[in-house]
């Protein structure tokens, strides 16, 4: 298998490289890709959508339909991980508790843990003592990360950024929190249900905007028909429409990253994990 694979791959690679001799040179301004369609986007983005960042305007307006299905793809991935992995078990098996005054770890089988006492703290079976340096730095940084993420989402019209990037950064901040403390602490703050509903909400904001345009006006996702609702002219309505769907993308991406992380890191149990 290995030898066969190597030979096939060398052949494929050789063939692929051989045929590149007819391709346009790297950075050739006269290549068909650069002169057929893209000049339209570059020259008309301001008059069509009033968004200087061409990537944003193409992503969320000219090819917004692609982007709607991009958010749908991550919804699909979240649902797929949930369907494949999640083990919704209510039964309590073996659990470990730390007696905080003494530092002794106790093991309780089943549900025999003394409910009323607050000197015990639940820990994972592969628990390691919390490191104060890591904990402190992460708690300090998470706020900055989230503020930066909001900046990236909101400033996508004028600088590199947008819904997807900002959503990833927010999701990463919450995953950083889960890593620096533990999975349970982060599930307590943003549960699985919230993550799932946020994901669906994000896609719904996007697709709902599209459907609203279709109900008011003519085409799916044609934001210019939102102008009477937003109280602006048709071009600024496109700019605002882009912003609305970017928020949808950000919410969906943020939530789905957390959702997938919960399921993958605990193999679906969401009881113990990183």
């Amino acid at each position: 298998m290995k030898i066969l694979g190597t030979i096939t791959i060398l052949l494929c690679g050789g063939l692929l490289i051989f045929f590149t001799s007819d391709f346009p040179d790297f950075g050739d301004p006269k290549s068909p890709a650069s002169i057929h369609l893209s000049p339209y986007f570059i020259e008309h983005t301001l008059e069509d959508t009033a968004v200087p960042n061409i990537v944003t305007s193409v992503l969320a307006d000219y090819r917004s339909y692609d982007t709607m299905f991009e958010t749908t793809v991550i919804l699909t991935a979240g649902l797929a991980c949930f369907l494949l992995l999640r083990i919704p078990t209510k039964e309590v098996t073996r659990r470990y508790y730390l007696h905080e005054p003494t530092g002794v770890t106790l093991r309780f089988d089943g549900d025999r843990y003394p409910k009323g006492s607050n000197v015990f703290k639940r820990i994972d079976s592969n628990w390691v003592p919390y490191d104060i340096i890591i904990n402190f730095t992460c708690r300090l940084l998470i706020h900055f990360i989230q503020i930066f993420a909001l900046y990236v989402v909101a400033h996508g019209h004028y600088s590199p950024g947008g819904g997807f990037q900002g959503g990833v950064v927010i999701g990463a901040s919450i995953i950083l929190f889960a890593i620096s403390s533990n999975l349970r602490a982060s599930i307590k703050r943003l549960g699985e249900k919230a993550a799932a509903i946020f994901t669906a909400t994000g896609v719904f904001i996007y697709a709902g905007t599209g459907a609203l345009c279709m109900v008011i006006g003519e085409h799916f996702l044609n934001y210019s028909f939102l102008a009477p609702l937003l109280g602006t002219d048709r071009i600024m309505a496109r700019s605002h429409g882009i912003f609305i769907v970017e928020i949808g993308v950000a919410v969906a991406v943020m939530a789905v990253m957390i959702w997938i992380y919960y399921n993958l890191s605990s193999a679906g149990k969401q009881d113990e994990g990183l």
């Binding site: 890709a33 301001l46 968004v51 200087p52 590199p160």
Partner: peptide
């Protein structure tokens, strides 16, 4: 997507002029 002599695809001073000036 790269073009020799091209910069990143954000219209320079785009938000100073608003739409209509292209």
């Amino acid at each position: 997507g790269y073009k020799k002599g091209g910069t990143l695809p954000i219209i320079m001073h785009g938000h100073d002029h608003g739409h209509g000036v292209d």
